[in-house]
């Protein structure tokens, strides 16, 4: 178990280093930062001054090391746009994004797992195919469009839910559903295929030969073995939701990290872009590690020994 986790942790550190490099490189690839910070009306001298003040005239490796060292010690730099420490900006917005991500994942799991189990138990029947086509629709529907449909239906026509902001809890419902929709197909298909495999296994035949109840056979014996890929992918999906909620936060006017990222990308506020990528990547790596640990709990064979 300890060896397994150690291996995973080393891998996580390597991933983080890669992310640091990529996050840094991407912002540098997007053009001359000094020019875009200076704005369209700046003179050539202004640009030179900015380049010097921000240290953009120094060699790239030096800039990278400075940033990486500072970031590792918790200093993510200052936003040019907000003229405030980047970490403060992110910290302020993170709860909204995390909350949204968790609600989205909750909706997704609560839908995908029961439907996946049902489809597996009725493999090849009409019900199975109906569930399959629902996932196809879910996958094919762009989330901004679904978001707008929900806003029109439940926000404007029926007026059940607020159309923007999260001043009250029910503001999370629609964005949560939209976010969940994109995660459901993969989770559902994994649950279904995992359950089909588990249900046709020898140990399920043994469980049936023991006379166990259907619920015990399905939920205790089969689901536990089918759950591992679902856990792994759910962690990845949550990472996607946290990083990829940009569109949804924009549609529903939620001022979370996604919105901040979108804003800073369009304004070329590169310290914020770098920091957001880094923070989300850290969360992502943390989630994968968590999934590995949960899988080790689920499957004794992974614990080694």
């Amino acid at each position: 178990m300890r060896k397994f986790l150690l291996r995973r942790a080393i891998l996580a550190v390597m991933v983080m280093l890669t992310v640091l490099v990529v996050a840094f490189a991407l912002t540098r690839l997007s053009g001359d930062l000094a020019v875009s910070i200076a704005g369209p009306n700046a003179t050539a001298e202004d640009v030179v001054t900015i380049r010097k003040n921000y240290g953009l005239d120094r060699p790239l490796p030096a800039q990278f090391v400075d940033w990486a060292v500072a970031a590792a010690s918790g200093d993510l730099g200052r936003s040019y746009l907000y003229r405030a420490p980047v970490w403060g900006l992110i910290k302020e917005r993170l709860p909204i994004t995390v909350c949204l991500g968790l609600i989205g994942l909750g909706f997704a799991l609560a839908t995908a797992i029961p439907l996946g189990i049902l489809a597996a138990m009725r493999e090849g029947t009409l019900l199975d195919r109906a569930i399959g086509s629902v996932t196809l629709i879910g996958q094919a529907m762009p989330s901004f469009w679904l978001g707008l449909l929900l806003i029109i239906t439940f926000g404007l026509k029926l007026q059940w839910l607020p159309i923007s902001g999260v001043d009250t809890w029910d503001g999370y419902v629609m964005p949560g559903i939209v976010l969940a929709f994109s995660a459901i197909p993969a989770l559902l298909r994994l649950t279904r295929s995992g359950m089909i495999e588990a249900l046709s296994s020898d140990y399920i035949r043994t469980a049936r030969a023991k006379g166990l109840s259907t619920s015990s056979i399905v939920l205790k014996h089969a689901l536990r073995n089918a759950a591992m890929p679902v856990v792994s992918v759910a962690a990845v999906q949550l990472g996607f939701m946290l990083g990829g909620s940009i569109v949804i936060e924009t549609v529903f006017a939620l001022h979370g990290v996604g919105y901040l990222a979108w804003e800073s990308i369009s304004k070329n506020d590169f310290p914020v872009v770098q920091a957001v990528v880094l923070v989300l990547a850290t969360i992502y790596v943390g989630l994968t590690l968590l999934a590995d640990m949960m899988n080790a709990v689920l499957d004794p064979r992974l614990r080694g020994g």
């Binding site: 020898d202 140990y203 043994t206 030969a209 014996h221 073995n225 689920l298």
Partner: peptide
């Protein structure tokens, strides 16, 4: 059954 290796639930 015939397959003792797979007839017990690994979990």
């Amino acid at each position: 059954f015939q397959e003792p290796m797979t007839s017990l639930n690994p979990a």
